[in-house]
Structure formats: structure tokens, C-alpha cells
Amino acid sequence: MRYLFPAIAVAGICAFQPSFAQPYPARPVTVVVPVPAGGTGDTIARLIAAQLQERLHQPFVVDNRPGANTTIGATFAARARADGYTLLVTGAPTFTINPLIYPNARYSAASFDYLGIVAAMPMVMLTYPGSPLKTVADVVAAARKEPGGLSYGSFGSGSMPNIIAESFALKTGITLLHVPFQGSAPSLTALMGKQTALAVDSVVAAAPFIQSGALVPIAVASRQHAALLPQVPTFIEQGVPDFVFDNWVGVVAPKGLPADVSARLEAELKAVVQAPEVQKKLGALGFSASWQDGAAFQRRASAEMAQNATVVEKAKLK
């Protein structure tokens, strides 16, 4: 009998060893989306999650946690276990604006391991039909003629449109009047009603109104023309150098992800983004499949945050 218990112990260890050796993922993965269900950001996250699920043969379950300009969902993800079973899919402001605007936010850009940028969409400056503001030069001239009198609408203080407009003002040496709204729809509605002179919004939100003639584009904040608005010139083409503000979507995980899990996820995300059917679906949403690996993603987020920090400080957006 004295050999029985050691034998049982060894057998028990052997029985449990395979559970530790299971490759990632061995169980369902939670994909946190810090915006409400049904929007563009949510649609992209669900597309990526479905593709990862198909490739990795485990459920990738979308968990919508909206609120406080994405900080609620981002905080939840940042505090999760760093094992690859919680991912966060979100847009640029989560990393490059919110930590600057919300000093009490319970996460920072350093709270995550960066896995990759999967999509990008340019932003556009707009006006109403019949406006005398046809070009970037027109906007600059009008603002210089009446400093602080030329108004623009945004999604609110610290929103990406607010950052873009104030960055434009700083680059061109003008002053604009900010009129914040609770979202894209009221901002564009006010512009159509001539309550504001300008607005900055996403190409996706603006395109239907531009195509119907309800709004007029002035410039897109990207290096190339937008696929949905190929006729609209960029700010760069109109004399504002390096004026690029893509609203990209990235995938991150809580800081401390095991190296093998990080490498696996990064490789799978790259394969997903490069799949023709995914590129087609992203294009239909107004995004381009814009793969950047984790290292490039982190560098880009860091550079954009530094750029935005200057705007936040000089425009006093806190």
C-alpha cells in the first residue's frame, strides 16, 4: 500500500498536465466594445470577432460596454486578466484623446498591449449648400476677417472633430468658435439649418448628405482621397502640410499578455484584415482595411497623443 498514494499522485499530475499545454485559445474570448450595439464601431468589432472565431475555433463574444466616451469599456478591459481572453476593439480617441481630456480616467495608453490597427476612415470638413466657404483658403480668410466668429459643430468638447478643428486653427493661425453637440446627427442637422458655418465629421456619416446635396465637403483629413468621396481634395492638397486625422480602429489586450498569445493574435488579425471578403465589407462601411502591426500601432498612438496633447493644452480643451 505504501506505493499506492505516490502512484495516484503521479497519475493525477499526468491527468492534469494537458490542460496547461492547451494552445490558445482553449475557451471563449470576450471582445469588449466600448460603444453601443449597432453603430459602425460595433459593426467592425463584430466583423473582426466573427472572423477570429472562424479561424481559431472558439467563440469570440462581443461585450458592449458603452459610456463616458468609451472610457467605461476601456477601463473594464484594462483591468481584465492579461491572458488573451479579453480583447478591446475601439477607435483612436480611446488612446489618443481620452487620457488627455479625462485626467481621472482609470486607464492610460500604457494599460494595454497593442495588437494591431485593422481599419481606418478619414474625417471631413463640411459646410452647407450656398455657403461662401468653398475651400480651405476660404475658411482661413473668413476666420481672419472675423476672429472667433466662424463657428463649427462637433460631437462635444474633446471629441475627435473638436481636436481636428482646433488643430486646423492652430496650424493656420486662426480662431474658430466651437459649438458642441451631443453626437453627429445634431451637429450635421445644425449645419444643414445654417446654425453653424462648418462641421467636422466622419466620411461615413457625411457621405449620404453630400451625395444628396444637403451638405458640401471642403476637405478630407487624410493623405489620400476618401473612397466614398473621391472628388474631395485633402487638407494637404489645399496647403495644410501633414494634416492627417484618420479615425482608425485598433485591437488591444490588457498589459502583460504572454508573448506567444500576443504573436498568435497579431498573426491572426493580420490574416483577417488581408482577407478579400473582410476588405470588401470594411469598404462598404466606408473604412479601408489598414493593417498595422502591434509595434507600429503603439508608435502611431503615442505620436498622435503627443500631437493632440499640444492641441488640448493650447486650445484649453480640458
Rank of each mutant, 00 (worst) to 15 (best):
10 V>E: 04
73 G>P: 08
153 G>E: 04
163 I>T: 01
221 A>N: 05
318 K>E: 13
250 G>C: 08
258 P>D: 05
20 F>G: 08
26 A>C: 07
139 V>N: 00
292 Q>I: 02
308 N>S: 08
267 A>C: 14
209 F>N: 11
193 G>E: 13
253 A>L: 05
123 M>V: 01
136 V>G: 03
230 P>A: 02
251 V>C: 07
205 A>Y: 01
65 R>A: 10
12 G>Q: 02
174 I>Y: 08
112 F>T: 03
293 D>L: 09
160 M>P: 06
54 E>D: 14
149 G>N: 10
173 G>M: 05
81 R>K: 15
116 G>Q: 04
219 A>G: 05
44 I>Q: 03
84 G>C: 06
193 G>L: 13
204 V>Y: 11
221 A>Y: 01
192 M>C: 04
102 Y>L: 13
307 Q>M: 15
271 A>M: 12
134 K>N: 12
56 L>A: 03
52 L>A: 00
221 A>D: 00
182 Q>I: 14
138 D>L: 04
204 V>A: 15
103 P>G: 08
296 A>F: 06
218 I>C: 01
120 A>H: 00
314 K>T: 12
238 Q>R: 05
293 D>R: 09
169 A>W: 06
186 P>H: 11
160 M>E: 13
61 V>L: 15
205 A>K: 01
30 T>I: 11
296 A>L: 12
104 N>G: 11
57 H>W: 06
102 Y>F: 15
314 K>V: 09
66 P>Y: 12
160 M>C: 01
215 L>T: 04
312 V>Y: 03
18 P>N: 01
229 L>V: 01
88 L>Y: 05
193 G>P: 02
180 P>R: 07
173 G>L: 09
308 N>H: 14
37 A>M: 13
109 A>C: 09
315 A>S: 03
70 T>H: 12
275 A>Q: 13
198 L>M: 09
112 F>P: 03
307 Q>L: 13
66 P>K: 11
75 T>R: 13
258 P>A: 07
257 L>W: 05
209 F>Q: 10
143 A>P: 01
114 Y>S: 08
103 P>Q: 09
29 V>A: 04
301 A>R: 02
126 L>R: 03
121 M>Q: 15
174 I>P: 01
157 S>N: 13
165 A>Q: 09
30 T>R: 15
260 D>Y: 10
295 A>L: 13
247 N>Q: 07
62 V>L: 15
68 A>I: 12
62 V>W: 10
153 G>L: 07
13 I>Q: 05
109 A>I: 15
264 R>E: 12
9 A>Y: 02
78 A>S: 15
